[in-house]
Design a binder for these strands. Structure first.
Length: 657
RNA sequence: GCCCGAGUAGCUCAGUCGGCAGAGCGAUUCAUUCGUAAUGAAUAGGUCCGGGGUUCGAUUCCCCGCUCGGGCUCCA
């Protein structure tokens, strides 16, 4: 007899040898049908696993995240089975579930690659495997035997060797391998069909027949173990869902997200374009885009003034000497544009503003009374991004940082960090972002300067700031800049995507390299610390993120055109001009759409341009001094007095921020 | 930089198994004067990304390059 506890607190007794599947069946037919895996005392198990007496057991269906995860993981196995069956000599690496789907990495003989036609063929074979309803059979074998089983598969052998050498700690150290093997001398495998076995931690769905609502999406190159020094594998991405309806809904969401693409919206709304003549990652700003950008920058400036920043300007170029002293030529050279040689000196376009701000600090003697000194610049920087990384406004080779450098005494750093983080979040909220996720990045393993105790001190200061702000954060071990640890703030946009925007970095390196000091209260010379802080991150990128966040419908205070006045017929043109004039005097950005086209068409055009207020004026309005108001949200209204129209738009224009 | 894919009118995209280049939207002109998401007609608009090759003939096939998209790496 086996006794298990169910999530509702009840207990259930089953015959000896009962499996999770037995349990599901005893609870109900429907659960037995929908069950994917089970969780026993917190550990995921196959349905075929015998239950342990006294365990707390939960049956998992594909309705839960955990169940879907399993479904995707199992689908990845079927993908691998199909590929290995169709392409003799192919080998496989890892194939984990990821958000909304899964991937699997392969290597084809002779460095061959997959094409889109291959994907169709592979999907076809996958459907055959699924139709055959092959059971997933788990087997645990020792590492030596596993090396024989996977004799033809070097990447699998590498995984087995790594996990058996590293023991149980490997699961933490190699998160990407965690779905493959648990560590230790015994590894688990899952076989399905006669000829397919994969190294895998499991668990899996009971049989391939449980799968089916999947789509193979694309093929991409991916470096083995994410390392650009290792071979590039062929990665196939797919998505998988519990039902055909879920799959369809997901594909629909992807299509909707594509409609928000800032590159598409920028063209449709006449904001920004990327002339091929200029080169990759280089945009031109049209009048409406430039206006929105101007409004963003103006708002940023006014907030910075309030917060005690001082504004500076620095040139786009500086001599090699500066970048040698700063360490950029040692640690950052591959991202820098090549120098221009002039008068026997090499001038580099700046990839960062910091060394130039240091020059301002160093221009005079500093006292502790001057600190913290907060310098701010909208500084254009140029970075040589890899051509494959460039992406519209979100990743470009020339961009403008809203960059500030705070020079502070070591004592001031903790409180300065805390107030900086508050300031950053407050400004982000003003632009309509509500959800934040922070990341605390520590010392990089390879390229880093400065002693460990300084890194520890600075990292703790950042951690304290996060905790005092009450912000959720994750650790990114080794993700820091070469000169110090950092906090990056991600915002979540209207459709749930995360964007990295703000960054807060402690720097003990530049003050050292440039030999900065200040006179302390006791008259001694001390070394200040620097804090690097970008809020938008990049003005261009922030604009792109805002554009996608709002799907082009900027809040009224940022909308390039806030009101469009539409005379019903030519007779009302003078009145329309009068209304527009009144609004403009009041500070509302207003256009008039003349009556050559039918009214409905002009309304549609204004709506497509996401104008917040469409104002329709006809004979009744001329007589009464009113306008029809068709706001972006809500139903059209008639006969609103002009003074009310103006007041409403003005109120809306300040409400958002 | 690496892997896969794409580049045809201002935009979105058809098309040509190698033989005079197509649509819708947009633009322009004319007519229409209309009360809330597409009025009608006409006209203009193309180095089919660039360069080379194969061919009687290349937008189409081949090679090289450029740009863009999706990934990897990197990152604001």
């Amino acid at each position: 007899m086996v006794r298990v506890l169910l999530p509702d607190g009840s207990a259930r007794e089953l015959a000896d040898g009962a499996t999770a599947a037995t349990l599901a069946a005893s609870v109900g037919r429907r659960l037995a049908r929908d069950a994917v895996i089970a969780v026993s005392d917190g550990v995921e198990i196959d349905l075929s696993t015998p239950l342990t007496d006294g365990a707390g057991v939960e049956i998992v269906t594909a309705a839960s995240e955990r169940g879907l995860h399993t479904l995707r993981h199992s689908t990845a196995h079927v993908l691998a089975q199909a590929v290995l069956g169709l392409y003799p000599g192919a080998t496989f690496a890892i194939g984990p579930p990821v958000a909304d789907g899964f991937y699997y990495d392969f290597e084809l003989p002779g460095g061959a690659t997959f094409s889109d036609e291959d994907l169709e063929r592979i999907a076809e074979r996958m459907r055959e495997i699924i139709a055959a309803d092959q059971p997933f059979v788990r087997r645990e074998i020792d590492a030596t035997e596993a090396l024989e089983v996977f004799a033809e598969h070097p990447y699998k052998r590498e995984i087995i060797e790594r996990v058996s050498a590293a023991g149980d700690e490997s699961a933490d150290a190699d998160a990407d391998l965690a779905t493959e093997a648990p560590g230790g001398d015994v590894v688990s495998c899952y076989a399905n069909g006669d000829d397919f076995v994969d190294l895998c931690l499991g668990p899996h769905v009971p049989s391939t027949g449980r799968l089916g609502h999947f789509a193979l999406q694309r093929v991409a190159g991916a470096y083995w173990r994410g390392d650009s020094d290792r071979p590039m594998l062929q990665r196939i991405y797919g998505t998988a869902w519990a039902s055909a309806a879920d799959l369809k809904a997901h594909l629909h969401r992807l299509a909707e997200a594509a409609k928000r693409d800032h590159r598409r919206l920028a063209r449709q709304l006449d904001l920004v374009s990327w002339p091929e003549e200029l080169g990759p990652g280089l945009a031109v700003w049209h009048p409406k885009g430039a206006l929105v950008r101007h409004l963003m920058e103006d708002y940023s400036r006014s907030r910075h003034v309030e917060a005690g920043y001082e504004f500076v300007y620095t040139p786009h170029l500086a001599k090699a000497n500066l970048w040698e002293t700063s360490g950029h030529l040692d640690f950052y050279a591959e991202s820098m544009y090549p120098p221009m040689e002039l008068d026997g000196a090499a001038y580099y376009p700046k990839p960062m503003n910091c060394p130039l701000h240091v020059m301002i600090y160093r221009s005079s003697q500093r006292s502790y009374r001057d600190l913290p000194l907060r310098l701010f610049e909208l500084g254009a920087v140029y970075r040589y991004e890899l051509s494959g990384a460039v992406h519209g406004l979100l990743r470009s080779r020339g961009f403008t940082q809203d960059d500030s450098h705070i020079f502070a005494t070591p004592d001031q750093v903790p409180s300065e960090l805390a107030s900086l983080l508050d300031f950053v979040l407050s400004v982000l909220r003003a632009f309509g972002f509500e959800n934040f996720q922070a990341k605390l990045s520590t010392k990089p393993a390879r390229k880093a300067v400065g002693p460990d105790d300084m890194w520890d001190l600075a990292t703790e200061g950042l951690r304290a700031a996060l905790e005092s702000a009450g912000l959720d954060y994750v650790m990114d071990v080794g993700g820091g800049a070469f000169y110090g640890p950092k906090i990056d703030v991600d915002v979540t946009d209207a459709i749930g995507r995360a964007w990295q925007l703000s960054t807060l970095q402690v720097d003990f390196n530049l003050p050292e390299r440039f030999d900065l000091h200040y006179t302390a209260a006791d008259g001694r010379r001390r070394r200040p610390l620097m804090i690097h802080r970008a809020l938008f991150g990049s003005v261009e990128r922030f604009f792109g993120v805002l554009l996608e966040h709002y799907a082009g419908a900027f809040p009224t205070w940022l909308a390039p055109v806030q009101a469009s006045v539409l005379p019903v017929a030519a007779d009302h043109a003078d009145y329309a001009a009068h209304v527009a004039g009144e609004l403009r005097v009041a500070g509302v950005r207003t256009e008039v759409a003349a009556s050559d086209e039918p009214l409905g068409r002009r309304v549609r055009a204004a709506k497509l341009q996401k104008v917040p207020y469409v104002l329709v004026v006809g004979a009744a309005d001329v007589a009464a001094g009113t306008a029809g108001v068709n706001a972006r949200t809500g139903d059209p209204e008639r006969g609103v007095p002009l003074a009310d129209v103006r007041a409403r738009i003005l109120a809306d224009a300040v409400a958002g921020r």
